[in-house]
Simulated assay, not measured.
Amino acid sequence: MDTPSASSQPSGRDFLWLHLRELPYFRALLRAVEARFYQGLHLPRPVLDIGCGDGHFASVTFDEPLDVGLDPDPRVLPLARGYGGYRWVLRGYGDALPFGRATFASAVSNSVLEHIPDVDNVLCEVARVLRPGAPFIFCVPNHRFAPSLSVARFLKRLGWCGLAGAYQRFFNRISRHYHCDDVPRWQERLERAGFALENYWHYFSPGALACLEWGHYFGLPSLVARKLTGKWILAPYPWNLALTRRVVQPYFDQPAECENGVYTFYIARRS
């Protein structure tokens, strides 16, 4: 008998639109690119999502709800329940997962681990709650992220390397990045925690990063709307988002794998 699975089949869903109508365009672009990577991946049940956030990503990425979504922020848990991307939504911390040993058959963590200072303890906890042979799939910004920022590159061309470094630190701080590391560093962490790295690829070109970078500044009206109404996008209709889509579509259409990509997608397996 086949193992029950939460894998997504190759889909004709418009991931870019499904994210643009709910999120600021720079977040929508990145999440839409990442959603494509999960299509066809086998995720044996039960599945744990570490850092589920508001649950929107899971609700549009997977054909069926994942088993458990976990997040430490109590403010997002009602939203995650509302989107219906999980069978259960719980509050919890990655370094103290409220589950017994070998509870889950697979786990995912989408653009979360870079935000956790004590990521080594989190990886050990994930290994503890996963069954032997279980896949663990995650993605994070890599070592090229900060040096590829458009403002930093411009300042370096002017010879202002000190200012470029300060800008890189500033942007990582506002992005809450603690870990933007290369593959060998992540492989070392994974192996120490009890995982074997099976596959990885880089994605999101420096051009796409510039789109994301400037979105942090041009997206301030969306932040105001979120504070006032609880919604990022006040008019989630094609007529309102047509120009936005025209700007981000070329970056979404880029090849999935990018040799100089500033993010990396990892597939590891519990040893």
Rank of each mutant, 00 (worst) to 15 (best):
D118C: 06
R128K: 11
V151M: 11
A164E: 12
V126A: 12
F136K: 06
D182H: 03
F154Q: 15
L163R: 11
F145W: 08
H143E: 11
G133Y: 03
R128C: 13
R153T: 07
L163C: 13
I137Q: 03
A127P: 01
R128N: 12
D181T: 02
A166W: 12
R153C: 06
H115Q: 11
P132W: 04
R144S: 05
L155D: 09
P184A: 03
P184N: 11
I137V: 14
R185M: 02
H143I: 04
A127S: 14
Y178W: 14
C161L: 13
D118V: 12
I137R: 07
P135N: 03
P147V: 01
D182N: 08
V140E: 03
A134H: 02
F154W: 15
C139I: 02
H177M: 03
P147F: 09
A127V: 02
L155T: 08
A146L: 14
C161N: 14
A127R: 12
R144T: 00
H179Y: 04
V129N: 06
V151N: 04
L130C: 08
A164N: 11
V119C: 09
R173E: 08
G162L: 07
D182K: 00
E114N: 14
A152N: 10
R173S: 15
F145L: 10
L155H: 09
C180K: 00
S150Q: 13
R176E: 14
R169L: 14
